[in-house]
Design a protein around this nucleic acid. Structure first.
Length: 259
DNA sequence: ATGGTTGTTGGACAA
């Protein structure tokens, strides 16, 4: 079972790149972030033609997530619990093929010192509480998406320069570690300990892509029942080098079939 | 080098 996560930075501006990659790669489940589309205007038909069921959760201009699946999605939720007044479209979760899977777009949090950073930390605490609840089900759980978290110095081209950024500062990394401490496995690092320059995002500015000035901020967190089935987790840098690329590139998880 | 780029939208904001 292949599951891909990809911050596409506008699904409409990226439609040719995205459908081309899906046609070639054919993941069973696809998690999008930053669709930048209202739910009603999401290009559902283009993905149905590729054989996917489509769950899109959008808003005007910003944010937005989607979950595509070759098998039907059941028991869908479209909000992260815990702050009902939060209307930002950042979360969708469903059961597909016996796996509880989420597409999440964690707040960026910059600039630190504005309301954006405490919002990020509150959102992370809500995710921690919900992730704990999900473990109680005993189902395999896969939480994939753009976490806007650089977990460790090896995951950023310039750790000193990024020390106080909302994606890397100590408080952010500790909160991410608290989620892992519940019993979740970060799939890519578990399979590639010590690997450097394995990035999933390169800014559009200042030649970040040709200079390989990247960040690893797109992750899969796996419950123990999902981690037991972990086969592979790879970053596909191909799409980032294409014309009209997103600033993120897809990460692909592979889980073996249950015993 | 107080810069640079992309997307939504139709100016300013988010990343």
């Amino acid at each position: 079972m292949k599951i891909a996560t990809w911050n596409v930075n506008s699904v409409k501006a990226r439609l040719a790149n995205v459908t081309g990659w899906l046609g070639a790669t054919s993941p069973d489940i696809v998690l999008f972030q930053e669709i930048k589309s209202e739910t009603a205007s999401f290009p559902t038909a283009a993905f149905e033609e590729l054989g996917y069921h489509v769950q899109a959760v959008g808003q005007k201009s910003y944010n937005g997530v989607a979950l595509l699946s070759k098998l039907p999605a059941e028991d869908i939720i479209t909000r992260l619990p815990g702050e009902p007044e939060d209307k930002q479209a950042r979360y969708v979760e469903a059961t597909v093929g016996g796996i509880r899977v989420a597409s999440l777009y964690l707040p960026n949090g910059n600039p630190v010192g504005t309301e954006k950073y405490p919002y990020k930390l509150r959102w992370m605490e809500r995710l921690r509480l919900h992730a704990a609840t999900l473990l109680e089900s005993g189902m395999p759980v896969v939480l994939g998406g753009d976490y806007n978290v650089i977990p460790a110095p090896a995951d950023v081209y310039d750790p000193v320069g990024w020390a106080e950024d909302a994606l890397f500062r100590q408080e952010t990394r500790l909160k991410f570690q608290e989620i892992l401490a519940l019993g979740y496995t970060e799939a890519f690092r578990a399979l590639h300990p010590g690997l450097t320059r394995a990035y999933s995002f390169w800014d559009y500015q200042a030649g970040a892509w040709p200079r390989d000035m990247g960040l690893r901020i797109d992750h899969f967190l796996l419950s123990p029942q999902a981690a037991d089935r972990l086969v592979a987790c790879e970053i596909d840098k191909g799409p980032r080098g294409q014309e009209k690329a997103s600033d993120h590139t897809p990460v692909v998880l592979d889980l073996r079939a249950p015993d």
